[in-house]
């Protein structure tokens, strides 16, 4: 046996307990989502079930107003991502390419906002949105998500922008390009991958946010997915767990797949700029 094979077996053996615990909730999710309602509370509890009931998903869709919440989540996440990116791209470019007075202070301010969690400010934010008449308005979430994500997006974009050599733009100027031309024809094409990756992570962050959505959205037709699913569980005498799990599967699996596919970029971005 080669040493790499031995090592691989050893490593997988060490990691396997952790992996079991990580994968356990996914198992619970799937097994519950497809079992008949009558088998939810069998005694003794068991993993097994008599039949795959895929209808659970369609029933759930109607009963929990999944479609409405899905649209709300999509609207909020996409809008917040667009707003955050439109504001972050120029800021990240300035941070990456210019020296200017107050740059250090701005960097510190970004770090501070990065650390400020919504929960500490939630009461103040609620009062602010009340004053603006934006409670029960999805746009309140768009604004807050954009603001809370901006430190991350600027950070991430800046670290990628820094890896695009400055002399490419200088070469373009020497070639007779204006600042705008070099930005559009040299810099932006090279920055597209970074912007896509950053956008997707911002989308996922917004998609998963709970506290602000729970607070700002007071009526059920405005709920985003996490709140909608939580509402199926909290304060109910009887919870339709098979529907809840079906909804969780639909709400998490697509995101998890995209995330898994992109996680290496997150690691790279953090290695490039965040931690250093």
């Amino acid at each position: 046996m080669t040493s790499k094979t031995t090592r691989s077996i050893l490593y997988w053996a060490i990691l396997s307990p952790l992996m079991v615990v990580i994968l356990f909730p996914f198992g619970v999710m799937f097994v519950t989502a497809v079992r008949p309602r009558a088998e939810l509370f069998t005694y003794p509890p068991t993993w097994g079930f008599s039949e795959f009931r895929w209808e659970n998903f369609s029933e759930m869709w109607v009963k929990t107003n999944f479609g409405g919440a899905l649209l709300n989540s999509l609207y909020v996440s996409i809008s917040a991502t667009v707003v955050a990116l439109v504001l972050s791209i120029p800021a990240a470019y300035a941070m990456s390419r210019y020296r200017f007075a107050g740059k250090g202070a701005y960097r510190t301010f970004l770090l501070m906002t990065q650390m400020m969690s919504p929960i500490v400010l939630v009461l103040g934010l609620f009062r602010l949105m009340m004053a603006l008449g934006l409670v029960n308005d999805l746009n309140s979430l768009v604004l807050t998500y954009a603001a809370f994500n901006m430190a991350f997006t600027i950070w991430m974009l800046q670290s990628y922008f820094n890896s695009i050599p400055r002399d490419l733009e200088e070469a373009a100027w020497m070639d007779g390009a204006s600042h705008l031309t070099s930005l559009v024809r040299i810099f932006l094409p090279l920055a597209v991958p970074a912007m896509v990756v950053t956008a997707i992570f911002t989308f996922i962050n917004s998609w998963n946010e709970f506290v602000l959505a729970l607070t700002m959205m007071r009526s059920s037709e405005d709920f985003t997915l996490p709140v909608q699913i939580y509402a199926q569980v909290a304060g109910r005498y009887q919870v339709e767990w098979h529907h809840v799990m079906a909804a969780t599967v639909l709400a998490t699996v697509p995101v998890a797949i995209v995330f898994s596919w992109l996680q290496r970029y997150l690691i790279r971005g953090m290695a490039l700029g965040a931690v250093k």
């Binding site: 200088e170 070469a171 070639d175 390009a177 094409p189």
Partner: peptide, 30 residues
């Protein structure tokens, strides 16, 4: 006078070739 209007050509230390363009496009950009 900004760089673009000085009519000067420059060869950079790290070459600064535009990575998303072919050699032909690099040379013909100006």
């Amino acid at each position: 006078v900004p760089a673009k209007a000085r009519d000067i050509a420059m060869v950079f230390q790290n070459y600064a070739l535009y990575p998303h363009m072919s050699v032909y496009e690099n040379m013909s950009f100006s």
